[in-house]
């Protein structure tokens, strides 16, 4: 559900040689984060947390993948 403009800015600034966000781009990001923070905290069940932990453990850089 990330808005297109936010996604575009994050893609543009990713990468070692990319320029940091302009003031206008920063304003878009700040507004997006402020909108998110105005919402109530997401309710996460135990299952959600457990699945996230398993994905972290078994992911490409997870604990299991380490030699």
């Amino acid at each position: 559900g990330r808005p297109d403009d936010v996604r575009a800015i994050l893609e543009r600034i990713s990468g070692a040689e990319a320029m940091p966000p302009s003031p206008a781009e920063q304003a878009v990001l700040v507004r997006y984060v402020a909108e998110l923070r105005a919402q109530p905290r997401a309710h996460r069940t135990f299952n959600d947390r457990w699945s996230a932990w398993i994905a972290y453990r078994d992911g490409p850089n997870g604990l299991r993948a380490r030699p």
């Binding site: 990713s14 990319a18 940091p20 984060v33 109530p40 905290r41 997401a42």
Partner: peptide, 20 residues
């Protein structure tokens, strides 16, 4: 600059994780 950019990215993804 790289630190600032990663801080921005982390702030956005943290807010999404907590509130979406």
């Amino acid at each position: 600059v790289a630190g600032i950019k990663s801080q921005i990215t982390r702030a956005v993804s943290d807010a999404e994780k907590t509130h979406l």
